[in-house]
Write a protein that binds this DNA or RNA. Structure first.
Length: 269
DNA sequence: AAAATTTGACCCCC
DNA sequence: GGGGGTCAAATTTT
């Protein structure tokens, strides 16, 4: 479906934009690329709204007539004698996002399951480098019932990445809209000066926000309700402090995940 | 050919 | 038993 492809392109360009923001301030590549990215995002958005005008009832077509009469019996499964101590508590954390698959890490899907009271199946992913680097990170993705247009997904993570690739990963994420809006509008955060000061900071934290957050000056792309990735900015520790009224932990490869945890904790109140 | 996904079977545990 | 997580053969993609 064309709309899906455009949405996908939008996500990827947004990611590219996130990468560009990491370049040093005033870097000409960053500025040129930023302009290009902005234009692509604009084109995507207008193409999307053009395509979506004939109100297509995107009733999720549930094709269920799976007439699998015969199940080929698989050879016997080897007894699982190797019992590794798996009583690790294995802490898990979840986020809600419209971009569940692109989170800066590489994942390999290893299963999909229909869940009892859910309309959509749940997908299971593990880190691509599980084999060669013993990285035990996993995640689970499930689309929430209810919305259709910008579908929202619950992503549950287990185990932090230990692979080398985690060092370079960036995590743009989207979280609950009401929470985000209140954060960006409160706390006397000056919205006008952001882009320049943000891009000159040394250690930056990726932040993304949903469509209904209108303070688009944080980032160069504009907010559009039909896009799945509306706003993305980066904060240094000073800005983080004033925005969230909390000291910024030392940056490390897992910072993205720590930040998500903090968001979630502060929202459950 | 190699890597990733799909998909039903298997397994654990409530 | 059955819900849900995982395995791995078959299939698809690159």
């Amino acid at each position: 479906m064309a709309i899906r492809d455009i949405n996908r392109a939008h996500e990827r360009v947004s990611q590219l934009q996130a990468l560009l923001l990491q370049l040093p301030a005033g870097c000409s590549w960053s500025q040129i690329g930023g302009g290009i990215v902005e234009e692509i995002l604009r084109l995507n958005t207008s193409a999307l709204s053009a395509l979506q005008s004939p109100g297509g009832g995107c009733a999720s077509s549930d094709d269920d007539g799976e007439s699998s009469a015969e199940k080929s019996k698989r050879p016997e499964r080897k007894g699982r004698s190797g019992d590794q101590k798996r009583r690790r508590k294995s802490e898990a954390w979840t986020i809600v996002t419209t971009v569940p698959y692109e989170d800066g890490h590489q994942w390999r899907k290893y299963g999909q399951k229909i869940i009892n009271n859910a309309k959509h199946p749940r997908s299971y992913f593990r880190c691509t480098y599980k084999e060669d680097q013993k990285c035990m990170a996993k995640k689970t993705v499930q689309q929430e019932d209810g919305h259709g247009d910008p579908p929202r997904f619950k992503v549950e993570y287990r185990n932090h990445h230990t692979c080398k690739a985690a060092e370079y990963a960036v995590l743009p994420f989207v979280m609950d809209s009401s929470l985000t809006a209140s954060m960006f509008h409160g706390s006397g955060f000056q919205q006008e000066q952001n882009l320049s000061s943000l891009s000159s900071s040394s250690s930056l934290i990726p932040v993304a926000a949903p469509a209904d957050c209108k303070s688009s000056s944080l980032m160069s792309s504009t907010c559009d309700p039909s896009s799945s990735f509306d706003m993305l900015g980066r904060l240094d520790n000073t800005e983080f402090n004033s925005l969230f009224q909390q000291p910024l932990p030392i940056w490390d490869p897992q910072m993205d995940l720590l930040m998500v945890e903090w968001y979630l904790n502060s929202s459950s109140n």
